[in-house]
Design a protein around this nucleic acid. Structure first.
Length: 685
DNA sequence: ATAGGGTTAG
């Protein structure tokens, strides 16, 4: 349990119900699904290893209360049945026993703060026009203040409020607010601060918002739920999460109960901090207080579980909504779809999407972006194309992010013509003109398809339209030029790209190195250099670099060095899944290797197997080698090269008919092959 | 933006 929250509530409970002080948040019932592994959230604060509850808490058969029991309203729950309060996974060590005769204190006000209603103001049009004129003019502070003298109606409380509400950006709101204070026209009330804070939040001015809050405290102006929720969401927007928590605590200290808006705002803050346990205990405390969360809260929870890639959590959100009779709205569906994608559940995302349509909700751009992205990343070409067709037939809304996501989907699926059609459509559209993302996607599509001419045309077109080239687009093109051995173009493109502001990253360097490997004349390396290079390379780039070096050696007929490098790479853990052994089958998985590295690995494997045969040790029934196959044109080269190398070695591997990108051999054939080679230098270098 | 909370791209 993080200190701040418990502090806040301890402070809140202290003095009112001293016997509740120190009550653990984690003595709450958790959820219906007892299999949920909450231990994965243990990194959020100090040690939270699952603890067994003290024996005195145990009562047989009460560990996993049903959901309906858990959801009993507060009024019907007393802590006399408090073994229900123990979660086997979340009980805090040294929990203080709670007085069982008293119900728990509520943690939020069930009634939302009432807002004062505006009375009709016939001068509203004039005043708004006046404010908009001030907004549009780029005037100095002095001129702004002078212009205030020309207000079309006297600055009464209502009129001033109207103007304050219409001013932007925040600098003008602040000027007007300060002017009002100096004019002493009427007492400054909470609402003026709240409106001003909202404008400051829009401008991400947390410090100024906090200054205003201190001013309110000093001047004795009441801070209400609207004030606190504005401060909290402003802190969240400005990424000063600790400040949001700090003000939430302060709210409790002053004895003000958050209502559901403030409460869901702070839930969101904890969610963004990745403090899943805290969010869940707050949620459950709220539920125990009789709160019926609304769709916004479920959206917060859904987003949190999505970020955690937690499918069980997402299901929990759906289940909670169902059992509380809360119908998901568009935003909730969007959030949950996004979350399903992050949790790697395309099938469930698809059903959820269909359920949403069934319920009569029309998807918007964000919905479709989420689903298109999921189908693309999952390589679900049929679903992706069907969805695209439905989008057109139903006239579902499109925006440029959705267009770009569709382009990326085409890149993922290798749909060149569809991408071209979309791209042309974007060019002719008014509001969805191709931007840097769109052009990058096209470079990706043409580059990965090996279409040099079209990729180069895109590259040339970009500066003419003022489209910035980024490192990803550059990498796609460089890779394509390298693979197709257009080294002169590659050098030229690289030079121009750097001039255009591209900063080479690991991936781009990997592609350059790969290209160099195909044309370099001499390369002097040794183990120490290799070690130095690997340790100076970021983790993700290590394997590609090693692959490139092996390719270089093989291209120079330095096979021995290639084997040495593969050995070193394996030693440094760069090829973790290379060998997979079960009792029945040994598998060599070369899918993350370059062609040279894969051939080297095959030779190495054959050598090892030969030695095992010679020593007459046990071998499995089946041998397989996985090269994989992808939409990327160049990735098909691996299977082809592998096939011809197998042929060259006359090794008994054949391409599997059931499994694409897989080569298989039986023990019998393999042993025969080894024995046929043994007298004549069987073991390959 | 008409005093407060939630969702879109390598």
């Amino acid at each position: 349990m993080a200190a701040p929250l418990s502090t806040a509530l301890d402070v809140y409970f202290t003095g009112q119900h001293a016997d509740l002080k120190g009550t653990s948040f984690f003595t709450k019932p958790l959820r219906q699904n007892p299999n949920r592994k909450l231990v994965i959230y243990c990194n959020s604060s100090k040690s939270k290893s699952p603890q067994k509850a003290p024996p005195s808490f145990e009562e047989p058969g009460t560990k996993n209360p049903s959901l309906s029991e858990q959801l009993k309203p507060l009024t019907t729950i007393t802590l006399s049945n408090s073994t229900n309060e123990q979660s086997p996974l979340l009980s805090k060590p040294k929990s203080i026993w709670v007085n069982p005769t008293k119900p728990k204190r509520s943690v939020l006000a069930l009634q939302r703060q009432k807002r004062s209603s505006y009375s009709y103001n016939p001068q509203v049009r004039d005043l708004r026009r006046f404010a908009h004129k001030l907004n549009d003019s780029d005037i100095s502070e002095g001129d702004f203040l002078a212009a205030l003298n020309e207000m079309p109606h006297p600055p009464t409380r209502e009129n001033a409020l109207l103007i304050l509400n219409s001013l932007r950006p925040w600098q003008k709101t602040q000027l007007f607010f300060n002017w009002m204070k100096t004019q002493n026209l009427f007492p400054m009330e909470t609402i003026f601060y709240n409106v001003t804070m909202k404008s400051l939040r829009f401008g991400r001015q947390f410090q100024l918002v906090e200054d205003l809050a201190h001013e309110m405290m000093n001047d004795g102006i009441e801070m209400d739920n609207i004030t606190y929720s504005t401060i909290i969401t402003c802190a969240r927007k400005c990424n000063v999460f600790h400040k949001a928590v700090e003000w939430f605590e302060r709210m409790y200290k002053t004895g003000l109960m958050p209502d559901e808006v403030t409460y869901s705002a702070i839930l969101d803050v904890y969610a963004r901090l990745g403090k899943v346990e805290e969010v869940l205990s707050l949620y459950e405390r709220g539920r125990a207080s009789g709160w019926k969360p609304d769709p916004i809260t479920f959206s917060v929870l859904g987003k949190m579980f999505g970020e955690a890639g937690d499918y069980d959590g997402i299901r929990y959100v759906l289940q909670e909504m169902k059992s509380l009779g809360v119908q998901p709205n568009l935003v909730v569906y969007n959030t949950l779809l996004e979350a399903m994608g992050k949790a790697g559940k395309p099938g469930f995302a698809r059903s959820l999407f269909e359920e949403m349509i069934e319920s009569g909700i029309t998807p918007n751009e964000k919905t479709l972006t989420a689903v298109v992205k999921i189908y693309g990343k999952s390589r679900w070409a049929r679903d992706a194309l069907e969805l695209w067709e439905r989008m057109r037939q139903n006239g579902w809304p499109m925006d440029f992010i959705l267009y770009n996501t569709l382009l990326n989907m085409c890149a993922d699926l290798g749909l060149v013509e569809e991408a071209e059609r979309l791209f042309e459509h974007m060019k002719q559209s008014e509001h969805c003109r191709p931007d840097s993302w769109s052009y990058t996607a096209m470079l990706n599509i043409y580059g990965s398809g090996g279409n040099v001419e079209k990729a180069m045309a895109i590259f040339e077109e970009m500066p003419k339209l003022g489209i910035e080239l980024n490192v990803m687009g550059c990498t796609c093109l460089i890779q394509c030029l390298g693979k197709t051995k257009k080294f002169d173009d590659l050098v030229r493109v690289f030079g121009i790209s750097v001039q255009r502001g591209v900063k080479p990253d690991d991936r781009l360097c990997g592609c350059l190195l790969s290209a160099v490997s195909q044309c370099l004349e001499s390369w002097d390396e040794n183990k120490e250099e290799f070690r130095g290079m690997i340790s100076n390379t970021t983790n993700e780039a290590r394997r590609p670099f090693c692959n490139c070096l092996i390719d270089i050696c093989r291209n120079k007929n330095l096979n021995e060095k290639a084997h040495e490098l593969l050995y070193l790479g394996t030693l440094y853990g760069l090829y973790p899944g290379l060998h997979n052994k079960t009792a029945d089958e040994w598998c060599l998985d070369v899918r993350s290797l370059s062609v040279g590295a894969a051939l080297t690995a095959l030779e190495e494997w054959m050598g090892t197997l030969s030695r095992i045969v010679q020593r007459e040790e046990a071998l499995p029934e089946l041998f397989s080698a996985q090269t994989g196959t992808g939409t990327h044109k160049f990735s098909q080269g691996l299977a082809n090269s592998f096939a011809s190398h197998v042929k060259k070695l006359a090794a008994p591997f054949t391409q599997s008919e059931e499994k694409v990108g897989c080569f298989v051999a039986t023990r019998e054939d393999l042993v025969l092959w080894v024995k046929s080679r043994i007298p004549s230098s069987a073991i390959t270098a």
